[in-house]
Amino acid sequence: MSTLTNQPTIDTTRPAIPFGREVRVETRKMFDTRGGRWLFIITGLLIVLAMGLTLLVVALNDEVTITASGFSDVMTIPVSILVPIFAILTVSSEWSQRTHLTTFTLQPNRGRVVAAKFVSVTLLAVGTIVLAVALGAVGNVVYGLITDHDAVWNVSGKQLFWTVVLQLVFFWMAFALATLLLNTPATIAVFYVVALILPVMVYPVLSFIFEWARDLLPWVDFNYAAMPLISGENFFGEAVDVGPVEYVRFAFTIFLWVVVPGVLGYLRIQRTEVK
């Protein structure tokens, strides 16, 4: 005769991980490594160094003047050059160091992981931009105190808005390229070629030699597309009547360098075998 006993029911379900917790985890992971911490420290030091050198130049030469707008531009240079590497590493390092095995085990929904990384990168971008602008304001105050010139506050809301937007777009481009390539050296190389080398060394030469380059470049480069929206002038100092075409150009550059590689990268992450 067998005896039936009531076995306890084991609930194998678990509540979903809150998205805010995933964002905090992805943000912390950017600074957990020695490389991430030192990259952030170096970026901060470069921002302070840029402000110090600017103040030194204007203090030693009375003929050199600078305004709040100039300080803002100087402070955002280190941010736009170095901090986008965080956007790259937060994606590509998962695959190069094979930590994605743990990440996708704890959170099988890869779309939520990508979304959490994107939000954490955006928050970091906004935070560093705010820090750079704040230090620029401090530098402008110090400039008025140590020189015979008055501090000039000429940063308009429009200019500040487009500065933030342009910086965010570069962060998002770095993130999108990282999802597409899933390789740190390759992504960094492509990002700096597209964001720095081509606009500084190649596009100006093409625009001065070929007439068609002046019409084409605003459709393929963020800086050329955003310049009329920020200052009302093109990259050559010529006045531009800003209309729908200028906004469409800027939107198309975002589509070309953020949306297209981002969507393709998302699909690749969803389909790539975890091994």
Rank of each mutant, 00 (worst) to 15 (best):
M1H: 13
S2C: 04
T5H: 14
N6R: 15
Q7T: 14
R14I: 11
P15E: 14
T27R: 09
R28T: 05
F31R: 00
F31W: 05
G36L: 03
I41T: 08
G44I: 03
G44S: 07
L45R: 00
L49T: 05
A50S: 12
G52C: 14
L53A: 11
L53E: 03
L55Y: 12
L56R: 14
L60P: 03
I66Q: 11
S69R: 15
S69D: 14
M75N: 04
T76F: 06
P78V: 00
V83M: 05
F86M: 08
F86S: 04
V91H: 01
S92K: 02
S96D: 15
T99F: 10
T102C: 02
N109I: 06
G111D: 05
R112T: 12
R112V: 10
V119T: 11
S120D: 01
V121L: 08
T122Q: 09
A125D: 00
L131A: 14
A132G: 10
L135K: 09
A137P: 00
A137H: 07
L145T: 14
I146Q: 15
I146S: 06
D148G: 15
H149L: 06
H149S: 11
D150M: 13
V155W: 01
S156E: 13
G157M: 10
L160E: 05
V165Q: 02
L166W: 05
Q167D: 01
Q167F: 00
V169H: 03
F170N: 13
F170W: 07
A174T: 04
F175I: 02
A178Q: 06
A178N: 05
T179W: 06
L182P: 03
N183F: 02
I188N: 01
I188F: 03
F191P: 05
V200L: 15
V202K: 12
F208D: 15
E211V: 07
R214H: 11
L217C: 00
V220T: 13
F222A: 13
N223F: 07
A226H: 07
S231V: 10
S231D: 06
N234I: 09
F236P: 03
E238D: 12
V240T: 07
V240P: 01
D241V: 15
P244I: 13
V245C: 01
E246A: 13
Y247M: 10
Y247R: 08
V248Y: 00
I254N: 04
I254W: 07
F255C: 12
F255Q: 03
L256R: 08
V260G: 04
P261E: 12
V263D: 07
L264G: 04
G265Y: 07
R268V: 02
R268T: 07
